[in-house]
Simulated assay, not measured.
Amino acid sequence: MSSWKDNLRTIDPYVPGEQPQLSDMIKLNTNENPYPPSPKARDVLTNFALDTLRLYPDPDSSLLVNAIAKRYEVGADQVFVGVGSDDVLAIAFMTFFNSKKPILFPDITYSFYDVWATLFNIPFERPALDDDFNLVAADYYKENGGVVIANPNAPTGIVQNESFLRDVIEHNRDVVVIIDEAYVDFCGESALYLTKEYDNVLIVQTFSKSRSMAGMRIGYAMGNPELINAMNDVRFSYNSYPMTRLSVALGVAAIEDEDYFQATKNQIIETREWTKRELKALGFTFGDSKTNFIFAKHSTVDAEVIFDKLREKHIFVRHFSGERIRNYLRISIGTMAEMEKFIDELKKIV
């Protein structure tokens, strides 16, 4: 028997959404942006100097860091960039959650949190959302090693307001509070302003959703310089060149094209609100999603039945097996044409 197997690290991995490869599919299962990246990013790609790829990239990704800092009116020393927000969050977990006390995040939230905690041997607890899928502030008053809040939350799409965030932060001044804002551009104001008042708050965002660049893997965090410096120390300890030259160049172009960003974001919001009305008319119920997806259940038809029948038509949505959410579907917002087709097929099912 091979003794090396005794020393394997075993873990139940995060399971990403299905990535089908069908030419006629409507893909509404991974919250990707249905619109292409900024035309300015396309121009950069067309004119990119391929020969530069033989050289290592700037380890500080300074061009991208500076562009993000300018966009959000913060200092460059307040910005950290990584290979998607998953990479950024993983580094934040490694950097800040090193006590023996459990970190806290909801029972229904981004399912990578408990995977990282397990992988990095971080104890954790998952306070339950209430019946309306809202976080309960009092659950985060207890002694802990850190707090992670996705706002808007995923997969529920629910936003916690400023008073809630302040309440939780005020009760957790001695630990780092991470606010994961992957979907914040679809709901309004970021909590970034709280980093000016609280030195223990870290805001994490991504280019994958509102900036149409899931395929490039660009994420970033913003907070006080001490937090960012600590994350850079950890990052440089195992990967000195995380961002490619191409990802930096495309990221700069994307974040500088404010007009395109606003236009596509607003189109998604408009399509989301139309879809909400249509779903309600078909007997679905859901919270007031402020993301680029809707987390909904039908009054009479089981979610798995709907999921399977849509899949037969090459329309892909996300179905979860968790105890409290197994009768819900998470429906990403596509183009208006895609959502009209989706609704037409739903009418045949429900």
Rank of each mutant, 00 (worst) to 15 (best):
F316K: 10
V248M: 03
D308G: 07
E273M: 14
G334M: 01
N266I: 07
F286K: 01
Y260I: 05
G251S: 09
R318E: 12
F286D: 01
H319S: 06
I294L: 11
F284H: 11
N266K: 15
S332F: 12
V252F: 04
S321C: 03
T244M: 07
I333T: 06
V252I: 12
H319V: 01
G251A: 08
K297P: 06
L246M: 14
A303F: 07
F320Y: 15
E304R: 03
F293R: 02
L282P: 00
F307I: 10
S321R: 11
F320M: 15
L310G: 10
F316I: 13
H298M: 04
A254Q: 15
A249I: 04
I325K: 08
E312Q: 12
S321V: 09
Y241E: 14
I269L: 03
R326D: 11
W274K: 08
T285R: 09
A303L: 03
S289T: 15
A263N: 08
I268C: 09
A281M: 12
H314T: 13
I306E: 04
R330I: 01
G287N: 15
G251F: 13
G251W: 15
R311Q: 09
T264K: 15
S289Q: 07
E270F: 10
D288H: 14
G322P: 00
T291D: 01
D257N: 06
F307A: 09
V248A: 02
V317K: 02
T275K: 00
L310H: 11
Q262C: 04
S332P: 06
L279I: 04
K309D: 00
E312L: 14
Y328S: 03
T271C: 08
E304P: 01
L310N: 06
S299Q: 15
A303C: 07
V248H: 05
Q262T: 04
G322D: 08
R272M: 07
A303Q: 10
N266F: 09
E258M: 12
T275V: 13
D302A: 14
K276R: 13
D259S: 14
T244S: 15
K297W: 03
K309M: 06
T271Y: 12
R277L: 05
T244Y: 00
N292S: 15
I333R: 10
I294S: 05
G322T: 03
G334N: 10
F284Y: 15
G287F: 12
L250Y: 05
F295K: 03
N292W: 05
F286H: 04
T300D: 12
E323A: 11
F316E: 02
I315M: 12
D257C: 00
G334Q: 11
E256W: 06
I268M: 09
E312C: 06
I315H: 08
A249V: 07
E323W: 01
S332R: 06
S289F: 03
R272T: 09
Y260L: 08
A263K: 01
D302L: 04
V252R: 04
I269N: 11
G287R: 02
